[in-house]
């Protein structure tokens, strides 16, 4: 049934599609160029990213070193859960973090029932929308993005890109190197719904809380500026 449905549909499409060779079609698409992207909300990738994460109802922290990042994670865990436990994917970058500096006790693997916090190391941060980007694999099991109460995400300033087009360029490089990832996930906020009377509620199916820690050389006033610019 499926084969004849396929040939029926394709023969119908052939009748109504414009006649052109693959090269012509590709040239035509190329001539249409690239889309415009919105201007960043603030100058500088760090400030723009932090501002948009805050607008997406994420909470943010900045860390200038890996040790500081671990401390920020420890602080977040303790202030919300009075605990130092979390689950992290098998990402070599996470394995190499100085966990002892803050007494954080990560378990490496996929989140299981009863574990409230997962940590991901984002592949990219997208300034345009304040999204972080992960792709599925051992380094970041899907359950770690989708099932915890709190999702903590580390983003390296070197991995910030301005637009979604630039994000695709980086994904293409990864795909050429290691094959196409099964899933590519842009995450821009805690899971939310407005399905009941239009009232916005966080924690629909996924994380109720989304905490982003930007790691690297960040201008000293970036966080304060981002807070004031996101609240406008």
């Amino acid at each position: 049934m499926s084969t004849s449905a396929r040939s029926d549909i394709f023969s119908r499409l052939r009748e109504v599609s414009r006649d052109a060779s693959a090269e012509q079609i590709q040239r035509e698409r190329q001539a249409l160029g690239t889309a415009v992207a919105p201007a960043p909300p603030a100058p500088g990738l760090c400030l723009g990213f932090l501002t948009n994460v805050l607008k997406n109802r994420g909470s943010v922290d900045c860390a200038s070193s890996r040790s500081e990042a671990v401390k920020a994670i420890g602080h977040h865990l303790y202030s919300h859960f009075r605990s130092h436990r979390l689950v992290a994917g098998n990402d070599p970058r996470l394995a190499a973090m100085p966990w002892r500096d803050a007494g954080v006790l990560p378990r490496f693997g996929s989140l299981e029932a009863g574990e409230p916090v997962a940590l991901s190391f984002a592949q990219l941060g997208v300034v345009e929308t304040g999204a972080i980007l992960t792709w599925t694999g051992r380094a970041n099991p899907a359950a770690n993005n989708l099932l915890p109460e709190h999702h903590i995400v580390l983003v390296d300033t070197a991995d910030l890109v301005a637009t979604m087009e630039q994000a695709w360029e980086r994904i293409t490089i990864e795909s050429e190197k290691n094959g196409r990832p099964r899933g590519i996930n842009f995450i821009a906020g805690p899971s939310s719904t407005a399905d009941i009377e239009g009232q916005l509620v966080y924690g629909a199916h996924g994380p109720r809380h989304w905490h982003v820690i930007l790691l690297g050389n960040i201008p000293a006033d970036a966080l304060a500026l981002a807070r004031s610019s996101a609240s406008v």
Binding site: N56, A131, A188
Partner: peptide, 10 residues
């Protein structure tokens, strides 16, 4: 500007 989840599955 973007929904909480925009995913691409291969």
């Amino acid at each position: 500007a973007q929904t909480c989840y925009t995913s691409f599955y291969s």
